[in-house]
Design a binder for these strands. Structure first.
Lengths: 197, 197
DNA sequence: TCAATCCTTGCATAGTGTGCAAACTTTGCA
DNA sequence: TGCAAAGTTTGCACACTATGCAAGGATTGA
C-alpha cells in the first residue's frame, strides 16, 4: 500500500480538483461555474483539469468506491439464506459509503437534475451491478436470476441514499433498513405468496 | 386528435431530425458526426436543430412512449394478485415498444457506451418509475413498497430490451418472459421462502 | 385582411474537450 | 552519481457545442 511520489501527487491533485469542484458548485451551482474557474481554484491549468477528468460532472463525482473484495467473497461463499447474506453485504457497503458521507452529501446536492452527471453515475452503477451479478452466479440457478437480484441491490442502495439525503436526521444505515423492509414486502408480493410477512 | 398545420410540421421536423441522426450515427457512430451534419441531412439549420433537441443524444433518443393511461388504470384498479396484473401491464407496454422496434434497435446500437445518452435515458426511466410508483400506491401498503415494485418493473423492461438486442431471433415479448421468470425466482429468494417455485 | 403568434435562421459569443509539442519531474538502472 | 526512459504539466490551436438575440417569414383566428 506504499505509493510512489508520483502516485501520491496524482491522488492529491485529483482530490484537490474534486474538492474545488464541489465547493464552487455548492456555492454557485455546477451549471454556473466553468472548468477554467475550477482549475484555477484547484491550482492547476485548465489543460491539466482535463487530464484528470473529462468534464465538471465527472470531477464532482470523483471515483466512487466499488464493492470490497472481502464482502463479495463473503456473499459468494455464504451459507445463510441469500436474503440474510445480502442484507449483511448491503450493511457493509453502506458503512463504506458512510465513511465519505460528506462528499456523498455534496455530490447529491450538486448533481440533482444534471443529465450528464446521471449518465456518469449510471455508468458506475452498471459496473457495480455487473460485478455483483457475477458474484451471485454462485448462489442462484441462472444469470437472469442473478441479474434480477443484483438490480435490486443497486436500486436499494440508490433509494437508500436518496431517502437519507431528504431526511437529515436519519443515518445511512437506518435509511437502508427502511428501504430494505420495502423490498422484502415487495418481493413477497411479486413472488405471489398470500402471506405478506 | 386532429393536428393543426403547425403541430404537424413540428412533428415532421422532429421526426426528420431523429431519423437523420440515427441514420448518420449508424453509418459513422454518434461521436463522429456533428450537429451541423445532422441538421443539413434533416434539411434544417443548425440553430433549428437546437430548437428541437438540446444535443445529438437527445435527438437520437427522441421521445420514448410513456405508459398508456388505460394500462395504468387497469393496474391501479386491478383485482387479480399484483404479480398477474403487473405481468399484464408489462406485456402491454412491450407491445407498445414493439410498434417502434426499428427505432428501438437503432437507438440501442447507437447509444451503447455514450454517457450523455445514458443520462437522458435514465431521466426518462425515472419519470416512468415515479409515474408507476404513484399508480402502485393504490395497491400496496406504503411508498417504499411501491417504489421497490416500480423499480423492478423498469429494470425488467430495460433488461428485456437488452436481451432482445443481443438475441436477434427472439421477440420483445419472449425476451420479457425470460426476464420476468428470473424476477419471480429472485423474488422468492429475497422473500426468503424455502420453496422456490 | 390584419394583427398576434409561432418558427426559422444567421450572427455573435461563451464554453467544452482534444491533439500536439515543449519543458519539466520522477524513476530506476548502470 | 548520473542519465535515459517514462510520466506530467502547460500553452496553444482548433473543432465542436449550446444559447441569446433580433430580423424576417409563415400560420392562425377573428
Amino acid at each position: 500500500m506504499t505509493l510512489s511520489l508520483r502516485q501520491k501527487r496524482r491522488q492529491e491533485t485529483a482530490h484537490a480538483i474534486q474538492t474545488a469542484t464541489l465547493e464552487l458548485a455548492i456555492e454557485n451551482g455546477l451549471e454556473n461555474i466553468t472548468t477554467e474557474e475550477i482549475a484555477a481554484a484547484a491550482g492547476v491549468s485548465t489543460r491539466t483539469f482535463f487530464n484528470y477528468f473529462t468534464n465538471k460532472e465527472a470531477a464532482a463525482i470523483g471515483t466512487p468506491p466499488g464493492f470490497h473484495e472481502e464482502d463479495k467473497a463473503a456473499l459468494r461463499d455464504g451459507t445463510a439464506p441469500l436474503t440474510e447474506d445480502l442484507k449483511r453485504f448491503l450493511d457493509k457497503h453502506m458503512e463504506t459509503l458512510a465513511k465519505k458521507d460528506n462528499i456523498l452529501r455534496m455530490v447529491g446536492k450538486v448533481l440533482r437534475s444534471n443529465e450528464k452527471a446521471r449518465g456518469i453515475l449510471d455508468g458506475f452503477l452498471t459496473i457495480e451491478r455487473d460485478d455483483l451479478t457475477e458474484c451471485l452466479m454462485a448462489r442462484v440457478e441462472n444469470r437472469q436470476v442473478a441479474a434480477a437480484v443484483a438490480s435490486n441491490v443497486t436500486n436499494v442502495t440508490a433509494r437508500a441514499i436518496h431517502l437519507w439525503e431528504h431526511e437529515p436526521d436519519r443515518s445511512l444505515g437506518e435509511a437502508l433498513d427502511t428501504i430494505w423492509e420495502g423490498l422484502i414486502v415487495a418481493s413477497h408480493l411479486l413472488a405471489g405468496s398470500s402471506d405478506q410477512r
